[in-house]
Computed example of a mutant assay.
Amino acid sequence: MKKLLVILFITVSYFGFSQDSNAFKSIKETSIEATKSNKSILLVFTESAKDYKYIADKLSGLSATFVMHHVDRAENNGLTQEQNMLNQRLVTHYNKTNTYPSVYVLDKHASRTGESLLNLSEAEITKFSESLKAH
């Protein structure tokens, strides 16, 4: 019985930790995914998981043409120091106004197209979503 509990504990611990580390995706991985699926990228900067969920829900209708990449600036986001440094590089490169939450449109090679969403009111999200659907 003890062996069974130890094996169960190790298995649960392994999958619990591996989920956290796999949740992080680099912009390079997102770019590869976008290229393979011939989609553009929505780069989403937030300071909380709640903000990201709200944005992802509102823009879910764009999943046929966009891959979403999340950059979480929250203090306790569960990412490693290296992952947080990679996110900070994305902030420095793309989010020059340091605006949170915000959404930027990138082509499949991770180059900015110039389109962005900085005002996350219901009306602005709808307008942004409709303009992207028209492209």
Rank of each mutant, 00 (worst) to 15 (best):
Y14W: 14
N38I: 07
K127P: 01
K36A: 12
T80L: 06
R89S: 13
T35A: 11
V6G: 02
K28P: 00
K96Q: 15
T97R: 15
Y52W: 04
F24M: 04
I125P: 04
Q81H: 12
E130K: 12
T65V: 01
V71E: 09
S37L: 14
H69K: 15
T46K: 00
Y14F: 15
H93S: 12
V67D: 10
E122H: 08
G16V: 10
A34L: 07
T35H: 08
V44N: 03
Y54H: 10
A49F: 03
S26F: 07
G114Q: 03
K108A: 09
K96L: 10
N76I: 07
Q83W: 08
I32Q: 13
L86W: 03
S48G: 09
V103G: 10
R73C: 09
L120R: 02
H69L: 10
K2I: 12
L117A: 07
T11Q: 05
L5M: 12
L43F: 03
N98H: 09
R89V: 08
I125T: 05
S48H: 04
F9P: 02
T30A: 14
S37E: 15
A49R: 06
Q81R: 13
T46Q: 04
L90Y: 11
F17A: 13
V91S: 01
E75L: 09
N119V: 10
K127Q: 10
S13T: 13
V105F: 06
T99S: 12
T35S: 11
T113A: 08
E122W: 01
I125R: 01
V12I: 15
V44K: 01
D57H: 07
I55Y: 02
I7Y: 09
H135A: 10
Y100T: 05
N95M: 06
S48R: 05
T97P: 05
V91E: 08
E124F: 02
K39R: 13
K108D: 14
T97N: 14
A74S: 14
K39T: 01
T80Y: 05
D51G: 00
S60I: 02
I41L: 05
F17D: 05
N119K: 12
N119L: 08
D20Y: 11
K2L: 14
I55L: 07
N95P: 07
F24A: 09
E29S: 15
E115S: 10
M68S: 14
N84I: 04
E75G: 02
A34C: 09
N22Q: 12
H109T: 06
D72Y: 03
Y54T: 09
H70E: 11
N87V: 03
I41K: 04
V44C: 03
I55E: 00
S37D: 14
A23P: 01
G61A: 08
H135R: 14
N98A: 11
E122K: 12
G61P: 06
N95F: 03
N87D: 14
T99M: 09
I55V: 06
R73V: 01
